[in-house]
Amino acid sequence: MSEDRTRVQEFFGSRAAAWDTRFPDDGPAYEAAIEQSGLRPGDRVLDAGCGTGRALPALREAVGPSGVVVGVDVTPEMLAAAVRAAGLVLADVGRLPLRSGSLDAVFGAGLVSHLARPVEDLAELARVVRPGGLLALFHPVGRAALAARHGRPLTPDDLRAEPRLRPVLSAAGWHLTSYTDEDDRFLALAVRRDA
């Protein structure tokens, strides 16, 4: 197991039981981001880094009864807190146990800043999505608000900054189509390029 993966598991594992109580008002932001992502009934979607499953109900509603939603997380404690949801898989987004091109979309809330190898991990997400499929990278607060919350300055080397994110996504097989970074949300939408 990599040092980065262990660090992520330790960080989230110790916080899993109380995670949802720390951010009780995020539900509407998740719902709005999922609505804007363009998911359709019948889509097959991966919630990458699903944590406690906060996005899963809205994702299920977006794809309807004919769709499929799978939640993947690397932290067993986060998945244990999400047991109310079906289709959960303990896995690293850098090594997904899914067939190539088997999904229509990936939703990743708070995911990007925890990727050990951003280009490689985002390429793995691209591998499991069909050409033309969607990627939605979301956070319920924007970069500046998140930096302020953690008491650190906002820096241009943040992977979520558009000038950094765009080439990383491109190198991983995605084309950035929409970028929003406001105090009350961060949402980057991308489309899977043809292989």
Rank of each mutant, 00 (worst) to 15 (best):
T75V: 12
S100M: 05
L154W: 04
A86K: 00
G42W: 04
G101K: 01
A172W: 01
V191K: 06
L169K: 05
R5D: 14
G87Y: 08
A105G: 14
T52S: 15
V106Y: 01
F12M: 04
G151H: 08
Q9N: 07
E10C: 02
G132T: 10
L165A: 09
L115Q: 12
A147H: 10
V93D: 07
L169G: 14
C50N: 10
G67I: 11
A123K: 05
A91S: 09
A58F: 07
D104I: 10
L137I: 08
R164D: 03
P153Y: 06
V128T: 08
V93A: 10
E120D: 10
L122R: 02
A195E: 13
W174N: 00
S178P: 00
R166C: 04
H150L: 11
G110S: 13
V106P: 00
S2P: 13
L135N: 01
A62Y: 04
V106S: 07
P76Q: 06
A123W: 02
A18R: 09
E77R: 12
A91E: 07
D47H: 10
A33G: 13
F12N: 05
A80V: 09
A85N: 14
A91F: 03
A16N: 11
V89N: 00
R60D: 11
A82Q: 01
G87W: 03
A18D: 15
F11L: 14
H150V: 06
V141G: 09
R130G: 08
